[in-house]
Design a protein around this nucleic acid. Structure first.
Lengths: 148, 148
DNA sequence: CTACAAGCTCAACTTAACTTGAGGTCAAGC
DNA sequence: GCTTGACCTCAAGTTAAGTTGAGCTTGTAG
């Protein structure tokens, strides 16, 4: 029973819910990988679906593709990742996620407790300063950064 | 004792930590407001600092300027906002923040519990689907959206 | 064996959120 | 009273994350 393992871009697009162009894009950015048929068409292993799922979920909470790429590089390119591999990735992200979560909570609670209090003079506000000067790097659009 | 209340762009930039160009930009986008001197220079009331602080904090957790602008419009333009006004704003955001927080938690916990389990086949994965099809609207860059 | 849907590449366009630069005005100190 | 640093406007550039389109190749169903 020949394994039906190989997927075309179209199939991956369909099953993952992301556009073909996005898959091309992710591949160009090194987030996923494919091999080519003799006719130069992409073929993907099944594990690409899991990778794409991670990418989307992570993006939805504001992690940039660059960061996702970095995290995914902890996964082995050769073999299908084991549970161990995924675990490593997840603990890598856990801290960043925790940080982001607490930042959000701070905003949520801070809005009510702090904002009206007159303390928002930037130098002293707990909201502004516990959130520590992050994300000041280079020009261009800046989204929620997890680093620092 | 003449109140030192009026601030120049430069002063606001310094105290708020955002660039002068960004302040211009926020003003163009209707996020902050100034009046002009006879010589056409901007002067800001002190409350602009608070507004800017909100803007930055909100942005850091991934709320778009458009959404921030919408929220800030619930603040009175004329008078300095009271604690009541801020409170209204904060409750407006609270739900969205709660939602985002739970999304993050889902990712955090899901990464460990779900990723290795083989269930990430997109159609059935709790991570993918509880996170519900949000943020699919129009072309261009897409960041963490709170709406929907 | 031939249509025609699905692929491929590459360049250009899009949005958000700013920054940079050019060219010109204001104001505070010496 | 003039110089120098802060301002002003407006246009164009930048980054991220894709999308869209043109022009060309593959592969599969009839």
């Amino acid at each position: 029973m020949a394994p039906v393992t190989e997927l075309t871009v179209g199939q991956v697009a369909m099953r993952s819910g992301v556009a073909v162009s996005a898959l091309h894009f992710y591949e160009a950015r090194g987030l996923i990988r494919s091999h080519r048929t003799s006719g130069n068409q992409r073929r993907y292993g099944r594990d690409v679906l899991r990778r794409v799922a991670i990418i989307r979920v992570a993006q939805e909470v504001g992690i940039s593709l660059a960061e996702i790429a970095a995290a995914l590089h902890s996964l082995p390119e050769g073999r299908t990742p084991t549970r161990e591999d995924w675990n490593l990735l997840s603990t890598t992200w856990r801290d960043q996620l925790d940080q982001k979560i607490s930042q959000l909570k701070k905003l949520r609670d801070g809005l009510t407790d702090c904002i009206g209090c007159g303390c928002m003079s930037i130098d002293k506000c707990p909201l502004r300063n516990k959130g520590d000067r992050l994300a000041r790097q280079g020009a261009g659009a800046r989204r929620l950064m997890v680093e620092s």
